[in-house]
Design a protein around this nucleic acid. Sequence first.
DNA 1: CTGAAAGCGCTTACAG
DNA 2: CTGAAAGCGCTTACAG
Lengths: 350, 350
Amino acid sequence: MTRRSRDASNDTAATLSGGGTINDIARLAGVSKKTVSRVINRSPLVQQDTREKIEALIREVGYVPDPMARGLAFRKSFLIGMVYDNPNAQYIVNMQEGALAGLRGSGFELVVHPCDSKSEDYIAGVRHFVVQQRLYGVILVPRVSEDSALVEMLNQVGCRYARIAAVSLDEPARMIATNDRLGAVEVANYLESLGHRNIGLITGPQRYLSTRERSTGFLQALSKRGIELPATHIVEGGYTFESGVACAERLLALEPRPTAIFTLNDEMAAGVYKTAFKMGLSIPDHLSVVGFDDSPMASRLWPSLSSVRLPIRDMGAFAAAMLLANEGDARAAPLIAPHLVVRESCQSPR
Amino acid sequence: MTRRSRDASNDTAATLSGGGTINDIARLAGVSKKTVSRVINRSPLVQQDTREKIEALIREVGYVPDPMARGLAFRKSFLIGMVYDNPNAQYIVNMQEGALAGLRGSGFELVVHPCDSKSEDYIAGVRHFVVQQRLYGVILVPRVSEDSALVEMLNQVGCRYARIAAVSLDEPARMIATNDRLGAVEVANYLESLGHRNIGLITGPQRYLSTRERSTGFLQALSKRGIELPATHIVEGGYTFESGVACAERLLALEPRPTAIFTLNDEMAAGVYKTAFKMGLSIPDHLSVVGFDDSPMASRLWPSLSSVRLPIRDMGAFAAAMLLANEGDARAAPLIAPHLVVRESCQSPR
DNA sequence: CTGAAAGCGCTTACAG
DNA sequence: CTGAAAGCGCTTACAG
């Protein structure tokens, strides 16, 4: 009889559950399933040798607890959601990979939720997602991470979250600040050190936190080195290619013409390239350009574009680890530092 | 008493389950929970008016069945996996969006699983993912979709799948063929109609199905129009930017120099741009270029790159719908047709 | 067409 | 430190 049920559970193992149930382990170990449960959940209330015996058995049988059964009993799933409205595909994919790396070995999986933060009812959509799936927690990617109404809803339904944003917006244990400002400072120092004095800046929409942080960092650092950009040299784009083209047309019509342009993302930098080429200006001979994001395109443009890189994968891994940490263990993420990747798009003005 | 429990279940609704349990609905409707279960699962064995009453109640209360409880009883989760090793981030993000669109309203969610198909044990990784989560099904994206060992494992563990590949590799109900060949035919006809006769082709690795399909379509279509490419004009790249640079150097050293180059992805087309510019060749004046993928970069390059676009979002939606369909309803996806997006990178040879 | 019983594989709450 | 009972919210298998 015991034999029969073992065989049965092994057959099951081959096609369904991947190593029997908690009952199989309990029977094999000669303990109650509650004790096995304690081992699974790392309760300290298990005798050392009992624990080791059970752990060996679990490995041997290849037993993995069923997340749905655990979730049903816990009233929380073993799923982490990633909520995003970021149009930068590489950003999303890198973040996913990082999050999964942070989840590795925990039995948690990542479920994705793209959304449109401009639609009125996107918060209701996220709410439904979180509540129905009883998500353990969610990772909030810019720009949804900046939406306090979203965060309020999550607090209301009791869902944990980790916010990723250009600067800290929340308590450290729920926040990953990417310090975009530091990246922009590095660009300012780089351009100044090359000898540029007549510099143009193309920003994103001012309602974006990233825009405000990057602009502030850039302008303050220039100012610290004695360079004040006149208002004519700062134009607001829309983080799109087309807006980059249009803003570059305005900047490059100035007299004297700026010798360098910093765009707050790579999309707009590509737009600057287009305008410069159309005007017969060579990069970096006549114009130096720096972007932000280090998108795949940056190294494909010709000449290749110097750009600020954020450690997106690491950010995703920290965010995931933060969500899994116990309340007590939770600590702030280490300092995230963006850095400028120098390529071929800049030189000293002539 | 009835009142009290209603209130209680509403409190719960606010923070946890989003609208009570099956028992609440059953009590309110004055039926057994089994009958409610039949309504949820669209069983025909329910009287029309009973069904309507229950459906109204479900809407009113905002009841949504707990996927973990259902999954535990069904022995299958309400999760669809997406398994990929494709380095094209935009492809992945579009596919995710499409899959989610196909899943909308079904109560299913999408869980992602990037992997490295070059590593020896990636199949074990996918197996663990599928078995532990008891996935309902998986979407297989190129190139993992081409791996018959992966598919064999999935059949062995009894997991449904939908494969996306350049050409049909499986029974129609499990396959979404993207007909890459048709896209390449269109490019051949386009270049020939512009008057190009001396054409270069940069392929991907021959072990990739997409490469074989695209190459075949292109060469056959040219042949049909009386153009036979000599072996010197066909070079094998690695689908990378760098390989595009190197292959272009070889092609552009030929005498007479080709007037057009077709690269089997956009990454390599960007490499051709770089080589052409370095040699002082202007695009499209001296050289016409066509890519494949219609990546975001295609429209950002200067001049913008003509490229073949696949309806990736739709493919994802079809794949998801296919997985949810019952065995009987399952039917082949409609014909997927890639098409050439014409931009500024080609003109007649002079 | 409808329902009472048993069970999916875990955990919590309570004893000991 | 360990376990028996009850329960998480559903479904299957069996009756009627």
